[in-house]
């Protein structure tokens, strides 16, 4: 006889069916508003930084929603939104080939060079 004890932690309330195994992550729904990535400048002089995403029917609505969702406590002075399908990303599987060449070039850093102690302000 075999039986399964399901362990549920906080925030995990189980499911009536067999876990999430039958969640399809392929289908797309035409009626769903597109997904937008949101970038916020927290104050003048700083870069816009990615904060999350949201759904909206167009760019104007995306900015208004971003205001409500991501800046309720004065977290931003400027918002960028980009439809998620327009984001192109590097492939994490190629991370090694992409970034390793920078690894063995210590001479690109100032600490690589031995200078006499008498030299000041350099």
């Amino acid at each position: 006889m075999s039986f399964q004890i399901n362990k549920l932690y906080y925030g995990d309330y189980g499911e009536s069916k067999n876990g999430a195994a039958d969640i399809s992550t392929q289908q797309t729904n035409k009626a769903e508003w597109p997904l937008w990535e949101v970038f916020i400048r927290s104050k003048q002089g700083l870069d816009h930084k990615h904060v999350g995403s949201l759904h909206a029917s167009d760019a104007a609505m995306a900015i208004e929603n971003a205001r409500d969702v991501y800046t309720r406590r004065m977290e931003g002075v400027s918002i960028w939104v980009v439809e998620s399908k327009h984001i192109h990303a590097s492939n994490p599987d190629e991370a090694e080939a992409l970034y390793d060449p920078a690894n063995d070039k210590a001479y690109r850093h100032p600490t690589f060079y031995d200078l006499p102690d008498e030299v000041k302000y350099m």
């Binding site: 309330y13 189980g14 499911e15 009536s16 069916k17 969640i23 399809s24 992550t25 289908q27 797309t28 729904n29 009626a31 769903e32 997904l35 999350g52 995403s53 949201l54 759904h55 969702v69």
Partner: peptide
């Protein structure tokens, strides 16, 4: 909304999640 958007990065859509909630599949 923060959490839905985090879940969506795993490949499930917002409407699928709503459907699971509304049909009682998700708790």
């Amino acid at each position: 909304l923060y959490l839905y958007s985090a879940a969506e990065t795993l490949g499930i859509t917002r409407d699928q999640m709503y459907e699971q909630l509304h049909t009682g599949k998700a708790k």
